[in-house]
Design a protein around this nucleic acid. Structure first.
Length: 186
DNA sequence: CTTAGGATCGCCT
DNA sequence: GGCGATCCTAAGC
């Protein structure tokens, strides 16, 4: 992991969630090819936030979120879906950034086959869809960015993405926090 | 285009 | 025993 990325992740989940928009996340396939694209939607979670898995302290499930910035927290939900987060902050803080959506750039055919032939726009427009398209599952929980599987690279191009903070989705508690960030110029 | 309901299971109270 | 950081399909406008 680069120093630039580590700096962003160490600033905490809310700041990191905003700055990660436009960064690109990929997984390395067995043949070495990359599959993934640019992050266009994130959400921040932290321990003092009632909507976070870490709100009630460390448990068997959420242990990865208490590691230091740069780990990948993958959790299982609704009996059938996986979602992935980048852990932020120093070890012990229980915070992270949920990767809610990406714009496919590399390995689109692989993503399409993993997503049952869905059209381009529906390949990775939700947190569980991102994991399905990238082949991320519970086996990846606790991995590190820059390890064997996860590659994260800075934004490319000279166009600055406009980032809009909004309310988070799919939660019942602490909905007032504007901790969801989306790229507006799609 | 919007909404409602079902699928499905591990974690936590 | 309840319910979730979700997705998909079908049916209603």
């Amino acid at each position: 992991m680069t120093e630039e990325l580590r700096d962003i992740l160490m600033q905490g989940s809310v700041s990191a969630a905003e700055q990660l928009i436009g960064w690109r996340v990929f997984v390395k396939e067995a043949d070495g090819n990359l599959v993934g694209g640019a992050i266009v939607e994130t959400e921040a979670y932290s321990q003092e936030d009632a909507a976070s898995h870490t709100f009630n302290g460390e448990t068997a499930r959420n242990g990865t979120m208490f590691k230091e910035a740069g780990h990948v927290y993958v959790y299982f939900t609704y009996g059938m879906h996986w979602c992935m987060n980048f852990v932020t902050g120093p070890a012990g803080h229980g915070q992270g950034v949920l990767i809610r959506a990406i714009r496919p750039e590399a390995g689109i055919d692989i993503m399409r086959s993993r997503r049952g032939g869905k059209p381009y726009r529906q390949l990775t427009d939700g947190p569980a869809k991102v994991c399905q398209a990238l082949g991320v599952s519970g086996a990846d929980n606790g991995a590190v960015i820059g390890g064997d599987k996860f590659v994260v690279q800075p934004p490319v191009g000279d166009t600055e993405l406009t980032v809009l903070p909004t309310e988070r989705i799919g939660i019942k508690k602490d909905t007032h926090r504007l901790w969801r960030f989306i790229a507006t110029d799609e």
